[in-house]
Design a protein around this nucleic acid. Structure first.
Lengths: 214, 214
DNA sequence: TATTATGAAGTAACGATGTTATGGCGGTGA
DNA sequence: TCACCGCCATAACATCGTTACTTCATAATA
């Protein structure tokens, strides 16, 4: 006979059970969107009753918060694959990775930055963990500062403003508001490009292709 | 005896009835957030049954879409109060007005850019009407171009990238991700400032206060 | 071994939600 | 007076998050 996801993980302790149920929920989120995240649906997909979900996660908000944190962890894993020896080029590549990840994991991105679960509000700890994901950006900004490739300033503020620019484009793109998302992405990023030395990065577009930079 | 909102509007034709019910829903949205927007709550607050809401709006999505459009109309009204003879200064002021309006009408902003109503997706027409709200930005960009105060490019793309920057900051600010929202707002906007002639706008910060501009 | 206790988990209920079918009520025309 | 028609309240249905109740397997103890 075939064992349900729940039965397979049951013997491996509570921790494995937790991750197994989270995987089930994650699959529902990715495949069908946040609307599929009902306690009954998740329990049925895993092969158990809703009671287990409540004892392990405390409620729907606890389960959604775990997915919220997982979403930022996926961002972090994506950032870890980015490498560039040139500091501004690295920052640029992180921006690209951000957009790539958001488009690839659209439903996770929605869970993180839209509010598709009516009552859910991330706890202060989850919010802090989310913010720490973007320490990657701050370190990249710091490297730019150390190499004198960027105008001086508070690295945190610069990193968060960079994050805001990339997030703004992606958010409007996903909402369907942008006529030409790729062009707007390039224009918005290169609008910040005067911070860097021109042509510092191989992906730096040729002059004239990006309207915001003279 | 006192008449309910519904009874007062009933005699003035269907159009007045529609706006009266929308006002009721708008009040619930502003006062208690999108979670208060249930068909039963709205009907009870107006003093009628849910049937009327279905005949007038077709369903919850129709009602929410009307509020969605109203949210962008409020943006438009806010933009109309902005005046500045200097083209880049006008664009700058529109950015400020955007943030001011988003913070003042937080729940409307949530309805427009977060997804607090599970099934709701704005129709293509609503999405187009929403985008037209930001023709203000495009016209402002055009004025900058006409006066040679900005590097040449597609006005629509430039306007949408400007919108993205402002929206990105406001969105992360409302989500609680920014350590110092005002500083990040200034940094992000002034990161685009090299498009304009330095000191073109009286609000242009002194050098050194904004880390992103050298 | 027999009995008890403990903890986990399934069942079913409660209130609330969006939606719709049913039925009544008040007008209008014959 | 009677039939008809449009509007609307009522009540039902399925689904949702949540929880009290019950069951059952396992471990500890006499």
């Amino acid at each position: 006979m075939t064992l349900t996801t729940y039965e397979q993980a049951q013997g491996k302790g509570q921790s494995a059970l937790r991750t197994a149920l989270l995987d089930t929920a994650s699959g529902l989120l990715v495949d069908e969107g946040p609307g599929a995240l009902s306690m009954r649906r998740i329990a049925a997909a895993a092969g158990c009753s809703t009671t287990v979900l409540y004892t392990l996660f405390g409620g729907k908000d606890g389960l959604v918060e775990a997915l919220y944190i997982e979403g930022f962890a996926r961002f972090r894993r994506r950032f870890e694959t980015v490498h560039d020896d040139d500091p501004p080029g690295y920052l640029w590549a992180l921006g690209r990775a951000y957009r790539d990840n958001a488009l690839a994991e659209r439903n996770y991105y929605g869970l993180m930055f839209e509010k598709p679960i009516p009552g859910f509000q991330p706890s202060p700890e989850a919010l802090r963990a989310a913010g720490e994901t973007f320490d990657y950006l701050e370190r990249a900004v710091r490297a730019c500062l150390d190499h004198g490739r960027i105008a001086p300033g508070d690295p945190r503020v610069i990193a968060e403003s960079f994050w805001s620019v990339v997030h703004g484009v992606v958010s409007l793109e996903l909402a369907g508001h942008l006529s030409d998302p790729e062009a707007v992405f390039m224009a918005a990023i290169t609008a910040c490009a005067p911070r860097f030395e021109p042509g510092a990065h191989p992906d730096d577009p040729k002059e004239g292709t990006c309207p915001a930079v003279s």
